[in-house]
Design a protein around this nucleic acid. Structure first.
Lengths: 103, 103
DNA sequence: TCGACGCGTCGGGGAATGTTGACGCGTCGG
DNA sequence: CCGACGCGTCAACATTCCCCGACGCGTCGA
């Protein structure tokens, strides 16, 4: 039942939802206002994020505030780490070439 | 036509393919041996990775060697960065609690 | 030259995903 | 107490994804 983090991040709407939640918890209708999508669509995207434990819900009266819960992102970072050295070397090489052409 | 990096990473087979290519280029049949999947399936996963510019192909006789091309992973790292500080703070807090209980 | 090999791609079937309108439930304000 | 509001969930449909067997093309070895 718990969705894996990588699949949760595969959708641009869900990534933007996480971005929106970085500045603090927000309610569903509020979040839906940021997209050209129906509220049910947003609600179901939030459910996917909840299954991936990337957000937590806090009922507040008749609205439901969603909080960012970024811990599972560490798994992505961990998977990414062995590759990091590799692409950094390539970017450094590119920078060196640019430096050489524009001293 | 170019697939975005996040979607390419959403599939565990494709992530494992990238892991396999970390130690150097490999041919398709060789890679397929690591999975319980038909060769066409692997071939199509490699096509997705190619569209995301995460691998490059080098024909060598009748085989085709695939090379890791990790640059686009920087985009993932970049997206992840604003969240990093957040989850690090939480992990630090967890460590502090553990330190306190086991001095 | 000819069969075997390595590979990409196509067609098809089954599963999963994305989106919406409709409905129902709990909550707030009057 | 009752209508309006915020929300989750369901049925339904379209789209996309995942996988395989089959086919075709280029390449190598005999």
């Amino acid at each position: 039942m718990p969705t894996d983090v990588f699949s949760a991040l595969a959708n641009p709407v869900r990534r933007k939802l996480l971005d929106c939640l970085r500045d603090g918890p927000r309610a569903v209708n509020d979040l839906a206002g940021e997209f050209e999508l129906s509220r049910p669509a947003i609600s179901e995207h939030l459910q996917v994020l909840r299954q991936a434990r990337l957000v937590r819900e806090e009922p507040r009266g008749r609205q439901r505030y969603y909080h960012l819960e970024p811990d599972p992102l560490a798994e992505v970072h961990q998977w990414l780490h062995p590759f990091e050295h590799y692409w950094r070397a390539r970017l450094r090489a590119l920078r060196d070439v640019l430096d050489e052409e524009n001293p």
